[in-house]
Structure formats: structure tokens, C-alpha cells
Amino acid sequence: MFKRRSLLIFFLFILGILLLTGCFLTKTFMVTFDSQGGSAVESQTVKLGGLVTEPAVPTKTNYSFGGWYKESGCINVWDFDSDIVIDDLTLYARWVSSTYTVTFDKNDSAATGTMTVQTMASGTTAKLIACAFTKTGWTFAGWATTPEGTVTYADEASYTIGTASVILYAKWAPPTTYSIRDIGPAGGLIFYDKGNYSGDPSWRYLEAAPSDQSTGTVWGCYETEITGADGSLVGTGKQNTMDILAECTTDDIAADQCRDCTLGGYNDWFLPSKDELYWIRANLKDAGVGNFESNYYWSSSEFDVSLAWDQSFGTGTYYLSSKNINLRVRAVRAF
């Protein structure tokens, strides 16, 4: 009788343990996801000691998702691979404000200066950095959203950035309109106006220095052909000069005299081409201005290995002269 009672008690004890254990093993808890302003995320039911299934990433305009955390302040991150559920809980989304950049482009190879990239949080508004670019003789007009576009934002205007980085392009207002024989920005005399701004870098006027850079020097590189220095038209003198300086090693030549010229704060002078030389004589020398001599002036236009074009400012006649003789030099610049 005693044995039977003991067995019954033992059986009931084991049964109670099993029932109690089963109760805990089947107990579930509710896991709620608080997206803190983001898109809704479904709650999950998880067994005691179970792992939470990582949900699809929620979204929030102008923000990047930064993970799920155990508290709304987003201090302790929830590890979906190791953290277990022991009670009802809420997980909180962390959001990182998306930032984008505003890059400033000079939009003209003749413009100079540098500007830092401006960083802004998506959807925010801030004053644009003041323009630090400059272009000789031109005025900064504002910013466009495309290189060829019109001004959309004034200097230091308020700007609201969206969901992508942007480039703003400087737009330049041309200088005061000049007439032939007006004093130019560098203090020289305007001798040519092509009527509009074009080219790269953009230019409209040609300005001659107010006096000669040399009373007699050689063209240089006699019996050596300079590749590319054969331009004769208006607008080719600058490239001719660059080609001469790049290839000719003769010292103190006509192109050197122009390159080394600094007048009115400008150092972009060059030796004029054959046709540019023509307009200097026609619009300045023949009008009795510019302090020109009735003598021979070099152009930057090469003819062959031994000869280059020059012009008599007395008669207006062009000549092909040996590159090793001494002639006068007058520098010009485009703007």
C-alpha cells in the first residue's frame, strides 16, 4: 500500500513538472517595432527564448535606416543572431539624416579660384557659400543648374537640397562694352571687337599694350619648324605664342617679350598673329594712337623653318622675314 502511494505521488510530481515545463516552453511574447516616423513594420509573436526575425528595412524620407535598438534613444543595438526574447518588448528604429553635397563649378577656363564643397542634410535649407571664383573683367552673375543654363540662384542665396548631390555652375556677366581705341582693362588700347563673346576661354575684344615690348629682337628658332605656330587669322595669336614658347629654346625671343609682360595687373599677353597685327595698324597706328613706330613688327605667324610674317607699320605691307633678324614687338591680350 505504501509503495503504491509513493509511486502515485512520484507520478503526479513528474506530471506536474512536465505540465509546468510545457507551459513555459509554449509561452509566447509580442515583439513590436517602433519605426519612429518611418514606414510601418509588422509585430511578431516569439516563443520564450526565441530569436526575433529581422524584418524588412523600413523607409523614411530624407533618412537612412541605422538599425534596431532596445530603447527609443537608440543606445543598445538589438542583435538578431544572439539576443533572445524573455518578455514582451519593443524595438526602435534608428535614423540617420542623409547628407548630400553642393559642388561649385567655375564654368569657364578663364575663371580662377577654388571653393569648398558644401554639405547639407537632405531636405534642409541653407545659405550657399559666397562665390570665391573670379574672372578678369567679368562679373559673377549667379549660379545655374546646368553649364548652359540661366541664373537660378544669386550669390549666397538660400538653397534647399533634395535627395541627391548637385553641381552649380557659375554664370559670368560680360564687362562694359568697349569701342575701338577705348582704354582696356589692362590699360592698353582696344583694337578689335568681334561682336560677341565666344571661344574657350571666351573673349570678344583684343587689347594692345600701350608701348612696345622690344625695339628689336628675333622671332627665334631659325631653321626649326614650330608645330602649330602657323595660324594667321584673328584669334590664333595666343595659340601661336603658346606653341612657340613650348618648342623654341632660343633665349629672349619675341614671344618671350610678350609672355614676360605684366601690365595693369594682367600677365596674359601674347604675340599677335598676322591678321591681328593688321588690325593693330588699321585701328591704332593709322589713327595716330598707341605710340607705334613706322617700322617693322613681328607677328606670331610662322611661314616655314626660316621665315615668319611681319608687317611694316609705315606702309602696311606684309613681309616674310628671316626668323633671326631683329624687329619690334607689341604684345596684345584677349578678353
Rank of each mutant, 00 (worst) to 15 (best):
residue 99 T to P: 09
residue 162 G to S: 10
residue 117 V to F: 01
residue 145 T to M: 10
residue 131 C to G: 08
residue 143 W to L: 02
residue 110 A to R: 14
residue 133 F to K: 10
residue 172 W to G: 02
residue 92 Y to Q: 06
residue 107 N to D: 08
residue 135 K to F: 11
residue 161 I to L: 07
residue 126 A to Q: 12
residue 125 T to P: 04
residue 120 M to E: 08
residue 164 A to W: 13
residue 130 A to S: 12
residue 109 S to G: 15
residue 170 A to I: 03
residue 166 V to W: 11
residue 143 W to H: 02
residue 151 V to T: 00
residue 121 A to C: 12
residue 92 Y to I: 02
residue 132 A to H: 13
residue 145 T to F: 05
residue 104 F to S: 00
residue 138 W to V: 06
residue 171 K to A: 07
residue 116 T to I: 08
residue 138 W to S: 06
residue 91 L to E: 01
residue 152 T to H: 09
residue 170 A to N: 06
residue 130 A to G: 14
residue 106 K to L: 14
residue 156 E to R: 12
residue 89 L to P: 05
residue 154 A to E: 14
residue 114 T to W: 08
residue 124 T to D: 07
residue 94 R to V: 08
residue 140 F to N: 03
residue 103 T to E: 07
residue 116 T to C: 06
residue 164 A to N: 13
residue 114 T to H: 08
residue 147 P to V: 04
residue 123 G to S: 06
residue 145 T to Q: 15
residue 120 M to L: 15
residue 145 T to V: 07
residue 166 V to H: 14
residue 149 G to H: 09
residue 144 A to S: 12
residue 141 A to M: 08
residue 168 L to H: 03
residue 157 A to R: 11
residue 122 S to F: 00
residue 104 F to G: 00
residue 121 A to M: 11
residue 93 A to D: 00
residue 153 Y to V: 06
residue 106 K to V: 13
residue 126 A to N: 12
residue 156 E to Y: 08
residue 112 T to L: 13
residue 139 T to Y: 15
residue 155 D to G: 05
residue 160 T to C: 04
residue 157 A to V: 00
residue 113 G to D: 10
residue 149 G to N: 03
residue 149 G to C: 04
residue 107 N to V: 00
residue 127 K to V: 11
residue 125 T to C: 01
residue 172 W to H: 04
residue 121 A to R: 12
residue 128 L to V: 01
residue 148 E to L: 14
residue 162 G to Y: 05
residue 172 W to L: 05
residue 123 G to K: 01
residue 103 T to W: 02
residue 89 L to D: 04
residue 169 Y to S: 04
residue 112 T to G: 15
residue 117 V to A: 05
residue 93 A to K: 01
residue 155 D to M: 02
residue 107 N to S: 05
residue 124 T to F: 04
residue 129 I to Q: 15
residue 96 V to T: 15
